[in-house]
Nucleic acid binder design. Structure first.
Lengths: 133, 133
DNA sequence: ATTATTATTGCAACTTGGTTGCATTATGAC
DNA sequence: GTCATAATGCAACCAAGTTGCAATAATAAT
């Protein structure tokens, strides 16, 4: 956590551990319920999460029901600062997975020379995840 | 509006007109401020918009600040029921454009044979729009 | 045209995810 | 250990969107 310029605190250690253990992106509520026993203030959790995002340790995904999910960056994205992966939303369990993208800038294809200058892209997929079919 | 199974009302006509006149997807607030004079209740507008979405006339896009934008379907999507276009978010003016996608199922590429069954996808691009550079 | 049926409208109250202000506490540089 | 600075916890707050319900307007039936 040091190398990201963050002070090492109890709250951050706990939240980081929870994020590391999860295959899917987690909501504020998800994380809170996973902190059994020694509670964590909801505001602290909000701030912990956004400190992770600002530091480039994690990223957030907006859901359909206007909440944020958080997930650590994929291993191959560390130190890059770029977020280049797809989000997969499972129709059944509603989980959101971060999947690596093997892409040679697909974003540039559909609308080049239309006046739109593309700097980044997000790819969101819906369907059924491995544990739901 | 009849062919979509919706009663033709004042509110719906006004909102539909506003959506038709806009190049970009509009927020609840955007639409409300464009109804000069004869007011429209905010709840009515919420319900009008979701009636459009349910009827397959429009669709909604989630923004980064957890609100919904609404836009009519692109001409080529009418009567299809499928929503197959990219969303372009301008970094400067924050507008969201709906752009037609010329795609041969790009979604299938990145993660096939990984256990994820893809049913639909959304492609979101960020950058600078034509009127901002 | 009039009436009956049914969906839409408008208002107030409410829900919920998230934020702000501020005093208290803990971290890490010295 | 001391100190500056950042993180925490609490309460109050904010804003987007929803719910319940009575009043009203749009279509269908007569």
């Amino acid at each position: 956590m040091h190398q990201y310029g963050l002070k090492v605190t109890n709250a951050r250690i706990k939240v980081l551990r929870i994020l590391m253990q999860s295959q899917v992106a987690l909501s504020h509520g998800d994380i809170l319920t996973r902190i059994h026993g020694n509670e964590l203030d909801k505001v602290t959790l909000y701030r912990t999460l956004s400190s992770f995002v600002n530091a480039g340790l994690a990223h957030k995904v907006a859901t359909e029901d206007r909440t944020w999910l958080h997930a650590l960056h994929l291993p191959e994205e560390r130190n890059e600062g770029v977020e280049d992966h797809a989000h997969f939303v499972c129709d059944t369990c509603e989980c959101i997975y971060c999947l690596p993208l093997v892409t040679e800038d697909m974003a540039a294809i559909p609308i080049k020379e239309s006046g739109f200058q593309i700097k980044s892209h997000e790819y969101r997929l819906r369907g059924t995840c491995p544990s739901c079919h």
